[in-house]
């Protein structure tokens, strides 16, 4: 039996894979980034995790061809590199939303009803853990303790921590972000004309 999270994650993976059939090319800029990092940090295959961090920081995720390109440069097999990517939760082969919601499910937040935060996100924008909204505005992950236990229950939106969350606070926060994005889009379209 799978937990709800795993099911949600599987569903999200299937959905996004269908949308983005990866082609095999890696942009020259990404290759340059990889080569520059490896040039600055001499060494062997132990550089795999740091270089993956660097690339994901830039691209937001790790497409399969990029993993392959990194493996070739480190002299290891692509499957070995992919094995590392799939082992660590931090790495993702799926693009994330513009607003990455990370709901803390640490014990302190759990005790202070972090479940209600997840429920409120689901009720407001219909997002389950591991999923991305169709407009790629939001993606949702649960994390194990942000270390902000004093603010429990807490959630990170990109790099900003929001604490003492209630159902209403979550709903208002998400609606605010969506309105902001809509305004930006409207402003962008106006500029385009």
């Amino acid at each position: 039996m799978s937990t709800g999270n795993e099911l949600a994650r599987d569903a999200a993976t299937v959905e996004t894979h269908a949308v983005d059939q990866p082609d095999d090319s890696v942009s020259p800029a990404t290759l340059a980034l990889i080569d520059a990092y490896l040039g600055d940090h001499p060494g062997g295959a132990e550089r795999l995790i740091p270089v993956l961090h660097r690339v994901q920081e830039e691209l937001g995720y790790l497409p399969h061809p990029v993993i392959k390109a990194i493996a070739e440069r480190l002299g290891i097999s692509p499957i070995q590199a992919y094995g590392v990517v799939s082992f660590y939760h931090f790495f993702t082969t799926v693009p994330r939303g513009r607003y990455q919601l990370k709901v803390c499910m640490g014990t302190a937040c759990f005790v202070r009803n972090a479940n209600s935060v997840l429920e409120s996100i689901r009720d407001t924008i219909g997002l389950e853990v591991g999923g991305v909204t169709k407009d790629r505005l939001f993606s949702l992950e649960q994390v194990r303790c942000l270390g902000a236990c004093g603010l429990a229950p807490a959630m990170m939106v990109n790099s900003e921590v929001h604490g003492h969350l209630t159902r209403t606070a979550v709903r208002k926060l998400l609606q605010g972000l969506r309105a902001k994005a809509r305004q930006k889009r409207a402003a962008g379209e106006a500029d385009g004309e």
Partner: peptide, 12 residues
């Protein structure tokens, strides 16, 4: 690698 949820000693 302070992974225990609810722990922030190492971080601090």
């Amino acid at each position: 690698d302070e992974g225990d949820p609810g722990a922030f000693m190492d971080r601090s």
